[in-house]
Design a protein around this nucleic acid. Sequence first.
DNA 1: TATGCGATATACT
DNA 2: GTATATCGCATAA
Length: 207
Amino acid sequence: MPLREFFTRTAPDVAPELLGCLLTARSEEGSVTVRITEVEAYAGARDPASHAYRGKTARNAVMFGPPGHAYVYFIYGLHYAVNAVCMPEGTGEGVLIRAGEVVDGLPLARSRRVASRVDADLARGPGRLATALGLTRELNGTDLCESLGALTLEPGKPVAGELIRSGPRVGVSQAADVPWRFHVHGDPTVSPYRRAKPRKSASDQGV
DNA sequence: TATGCGATATACT
DNA sequence: GTATATCGCATAA
């Protein structure tokens, strides 16, 4: 199946099949490749946890574009995260790449992630993965299907079906019961599960 | 392990 | 103007 067609399906269908695939970021500094070990599906207009739930905006426009492109955005004032856009143009579905194992460009990844004491932590979590790959908003909209592009995805060794586990998504408060997080069972690079922390409203914080 | 906090783009009032 | 966000890290215990 051509890579483009691979992405022209629903996010929950695509997500588990992305496990084991290789994501490579190329820049003047060099390139880093990770083997994907954890993902989450976000199903656009039918998913209240999706950035695309309330329709198209300047921020999420890429999610409504053609499949197989990268939706890169800035979150919490200091982190980047990357999604692979799914479904035909106009739909707004995507798969968040949450974690991976660095399999190439280890020295460069380490230099970008000085806080990591062990290599398994280099891309363990969406913000860490983005940092290890050196992602910035300039890569928003990049075509993942173009070989040797700035940010590309390619098939890897398939992960054995019995090693693929699913569960609730991390950090989402809406639709917290839908098992749309998929990961490789037992892999040390998978991020620890954390339920969405109910955030106190400002009005409760006194003065 | 558990909790607090940072630091900013974006969307909504 | 203001609340919230697909989070990471230091600190405490």
